[in-house]
Every structure is written in C-alpha cells, then in structure tokens.
Design a protein around this nucleic acid. Structure first.
Length: 493
RNA sequence: GGCCCCAUCGUCUAGUGGCCUAGGACUCCGGCCUCUCACGCCGGCAACAGGGGUUCGAGUCCCCUUGGGGUCACCA
C-alpha cells in the first residue's frame, strides 16, 4: 500500500483558529497513525488578503500545539506556472473551454433566473463556439475565463466519503465552473487539485464545507488522468447559536493564541479539540499523544456538527467548560517535572521568578506546585494562587479578613503568641505545628479552626488553599513567623 | 430558493433491531472527607425533534414533516 500523505492547507488570511487547528490535528493524527507524511501547504494565492503576519501566526500556532509537519511549508503561489500549465492542458485536451461572457452578462442572467425563481447555472453559451469564433474573439482582444467542461449526460460523479459515506452528484447539477480568471489567474478549485496531485496526497481530510467542492474536484482529477484520493469530511464546529465559528464573529476566543496566552497546555487543547467530533466506543476522553495516535480513526468521526460551548462574558468560564476541565486535569496529573518549566514561564512574566527555583530550591519549588495545583484551571492560576509562596508581597483577601480575622479580635494577640511558640519548637514540621496550634487552642478554650483560618488568612491572604499545615511548611518557618507577628500590627481589627 | 449533509441530556458523546428502565464526560445540585477551597469518592437533575410505516420487537431500518448546517463567486 502506498504511503499515506495528508495535508493541511490554510490560507493565511488571519490567525490560526480552533477549527483549523482541529483539521490540522486530525490530519496529523492520521499521518502519524499510518506512518505517513503530514504536509503543510500555505494557500496564498489570494494575494489581496494574505499576510506574512498570518503565516507566522499559523506556523507558531501549530508548533505550540505540537503539530509538526513532515514536509513544507510549501507555498501555493510558487506553483502558479504549474497551475496555468495545467489549465492549458485541460484546454488542449478539450476538457475545458474559453468563455467570453462578461461578468455583466452573467450577472443579469443570474438575476433573471432568480426573479423567475429558477436556479441558475451557466448556460454554456461559449461551450460550443467554433475554433474560428474563438480565434475571432481573441483577435478582438476580448477577455475570457476558462471553464471546465462538465459531461453532458445523465450520469453522476460520486465518491465514498470516509465519514459521510456514499455521496453522488448529478452532472446536471454541476455547472461548467470557472477554473481560470480573466486575468489569467487559476482559481482555488484547480490549484488545490494540482497541488494535491503534485504532493501525492492520498487522503483529503477537511471540513464539511468542502463537500460540494469534491465532485468538481474529482472531475478535474479524472480529466487530468490522476488518481482520485480518499476524502473524509469532518463536521464543523458551531457556536451556541449554531453559527459557524469565525474570527470575525467570535474574536480571540476561537484563536489558538488565546489559549496560549491564557495558560492552556497545548496538549490539553488538542485533546479537547479532538473530542469535538470524534470519540471512542468506550468512555475514554483523556489520551496521551501516543494513545491518541494509536486509537484515532476516520471511521469514528461524527457526522453531525458540534457546538463549541462558550458564553461570551461568562465570569466563571473563559471558554468551553470542558476545555477548561481537561486543562485542569492535565495540570494536576501531569508529571511535576514537566509542569515546572511551564509555571516558570508564567512566574517570569509576572516577575516572580527566582533562579534558585531551578537550582537549590528546585525541590521546594516543585513540591509547592504539587501542593497547590489541584485547584487550578490554567497556568495563569499559579501566579495569583502561588503569590504567597513565591512572594512576600501579597494582598489579603478582604472577605477572608472579615470572616476569619475581624470576627475574632483575640487573634491580634493569639497569632503573635502562636508565632512565638513556633519559634520555640525544634522541629518545624507539619505534625509539630499542628500539635502546637491545637494545644494553644485548647489553652485558650477556642476551636482550633479559629487559629487555623486566621493563620491561613494572614499567611496566604487567600480564602482557600491546601491544608494549612502543609502551607506553613511550604512557606517556611521564618516567613510564617514574620507574617504572623506582623498580624498584631496590621490595621485589621 | 436549488443541490447536499445532519438530528440522543444545556454542551461533548456511547448506542450499528432485543444487552436501553438509554450509558459516560463536562456544567449544575446534594453528600462524604475536612481547618478552608479544590482534588477524590458517592448520589441527583437532565435527552432518543414530531408523525407514519417495516418488524414478534425500533434510539437503532424506511418514508414524510420539522429543525439545523453546508454550498451555490472570475474568495480560499
């Protein structure tokens, strides 16, 4: 069996969005699974809208996701001559013809058809022009487009889609479509096929918005005598209003870089995206890279579109809750050594990083991450939630102050007193600190919770966190004592 | 509108004629754990779009209706 070759052909007219990323991931997965090649091709023939910035964005987005290509990036614009030559070939072989109808003529015919509530298809005015007529028109310098000659019969063109099944389209429903503009530039439909043939693409995996292009493209393959690849049209991703997600309508939230900038783990995003339209027969949802490559198959791609569940302005969820959940899952279960460097980046950005965390304090650093990570959803949470561990400058949560400090004015004396006792114990351990704390509570005839919650508020400033005595150890004896002693001076009571 | 595709909890989905009293995940709500919040564990709310067939039997097959999506350019 021939080598599997798939491609991802974005047009560089904007950033990489999650729909495109998902298409890339499916292609990549399929290539990896079959030991094939994943080819990146930038379809930049629309020079008006293509930008270098966009190209960079797409490349960076794919790299960040960990979706690496085996060949390319190729640039469609570099093969313009080949596209033109192919069109000439089609012309020469009688599979295409020159059409001199003007845009205006076509437009009025279209309007007339619309007015009569009929459907419009090119009426083939120029299809039967004699070679003399054509020559005469060219002589006059009349501009023309090149149209593909669709078979004039009752037959159908069909293909068996790997996800949708058999799809047939009557020749009669396909008009003689344009393959070269009047300015001599070939159109997407042609270029795409020519490129896929040159790149020896065996499987075209793309969105369902490409379905109606397929029969026409197959016609081109056949006219060129090329082998028709397999097709797999994956479902589209819609928003809650069932509208196709788009940069224009949804903005950053559908951009891959949004996730990069908001503390997502690349693989968590991939994992989430794959689940939008694909599943296994068991209940698995979390897959490592290797597991997914092993498990993935086109046959289990869904036929129906999926909805990207995000509500604009939702204060609790910056994006689809499931995406967040998967990210959180990886955050709290991934090997802590792998998490370290990722959090490091965030701390650097926030100005909280110290080189010792990579050196003599590395053990402490990783242990601290492990301690606090179970309640975080994104890497960003390590900045706020890690503040009392990585800095001595942290705000006191007002609600916690009210609830855990002000309600118990005695803490003004108790906390410094407890700090003093912490100074005296030889072993500043979880067990000892807890023992001493409970002992004091007993002496004072108060509930231990009062001391514990008071300490939490003063030592971390946060309303919640890991078990307090773990926190104490993580923050460290000196800093804990200092913070608690200061409690008496703070204007909190 | 023509042509094409699709249709199970709010969302992602399992389900290929009897294992379905429809399963899982996320969200939400209870409970356990507990010094708080998470995690974890236990439990709950919540769906086969509607109507006809076929069949001993239909979420599963067929038809119609409805709904949704795609596409109808000298964009890609």
């Amino acid at each position: 069996m021939a080598e599997v070759r798939v491609r991802f052909p974005p047009s560089p007219t904007g950033y990489l969005h999650i729909g495109g990323a998902r298409t890339a991931i499916y292609n990549w997965l399929f290539a990896r699974k079959h030991n094939g090649k994943f080819i990146l091709r930038i379809e930049d023939t629309d020079t008006e809208r293509s930008t270098q910035e966009s190209i960079d964005g797409i490349l960076n987005g794919l790299k960040w996701l960990g979706i690496f290509w085996d060949e390319g990036p190729y640039f469609q614009s570099e093969f313009a001559n080949e596209h033109i030559e192919t069109a000439d070939k089609l012309l020469a072989s009688g599979h295409a013809y020159k059409c001199f109808c003007t845009k205006e003529e076509l437009e009025s015919k279209r309007e007339a058809a619309a007015a009569a509530k009929g459907d419009y298809r090119y009426d083939r005015t120029c299809r039967n022009l004699t070679s003399e007529q054509v020559a005469a028109k060219e002589e006059q310098g009349l501009p023309y487009v090149v149209r593909f000659k669709v078979a004039d019969s009752d037959g159908t063109v069909g293909f068996t889609d790997k996800v949708l099944g058999r799809i047939e389209r009557a020749y009669d429903d396909i008009e003689d479509f344009v393959i070269v503009r009047s300015n001599g530039k070939p159109l997407y439909l042609l270029c795409n096929v020519v490129d896929d043939i040159r790149d020896r693409i065996t499987h075209v995996i793309r969105g369902q918005d490409g379905v109606t292009n397929t029969p026409r493209q197959i016609l081109i393959y056949e006219a060129l005598g090329a082998e028709v690849p397999e097709f797999a049209h994956m479902p589209l991703t819609l928003d809650l209003n069932k509208a196709k997600i788009s940069k224009r309508k949804h903005g950053e939230i559908v951009a891959v870089h949004f996730y990069q900038e908001n503390g997502f783990l690349p693989w968590a995003l991939c994992n989430f995206l794959v689940l939008l339209g694909w599943s296994t027969s068991d209940d698995r949802e979390i897959f490592s890279r290797e597991e997914l490559i092993e498990t993935f198959s086109l046959g289990r791609i869904n036929k129906s579109n999926s909805v990207f569940n995000y509500r604009k302005g939702d204060p609790k969820f910056i994006t689809d809750p499931k995406a967040l959940n998967i990210n959180a899952h990886y955050l709290r279960t991934m090997p802590i050594e792998e998490l370290g460097p990722l959090v490091k980046e965030e701390l650097i950005k926030a100005g909280l990083w110290e080189d010792s965390y990579d050196d003599e304090k590395k053990g402490w650093f990783l242990a601290t991450l492990d301690l606090i990570r179970s309640r975080f959803h994104t890497l960003k949470d390590f900045v706020k939630g890690g503040l009392p561990y990585f800095s001595d400058d942290y705000p006191l949560d007002p609600k916690s102050v009210k609830k855990n400090i002000k309600k118990n004015p005695g803490l003004k004396e108790w906390l410094p007193l407890l700090a003093h006792r912490f100074e005296e114990i030889s072993d500043f351990s979880k067990q000892e600190t807890e023992r001493v704390t409970r002992e004091l509570a007993e002496e004072l005839e108060i509930k231990p919770g009062i001391l514990i919650n008071g300490m939490r508020t003063i030592v971390t400033g946060l309303p919640a966190g890991p078990g307090l005595f773990d926190v104490l150890i993580a923050v460290g004896r000196d800093r804990v004592i200092e913070r608690m002693k200061k409690a008496g001076d703070l204007e909190l009571f």
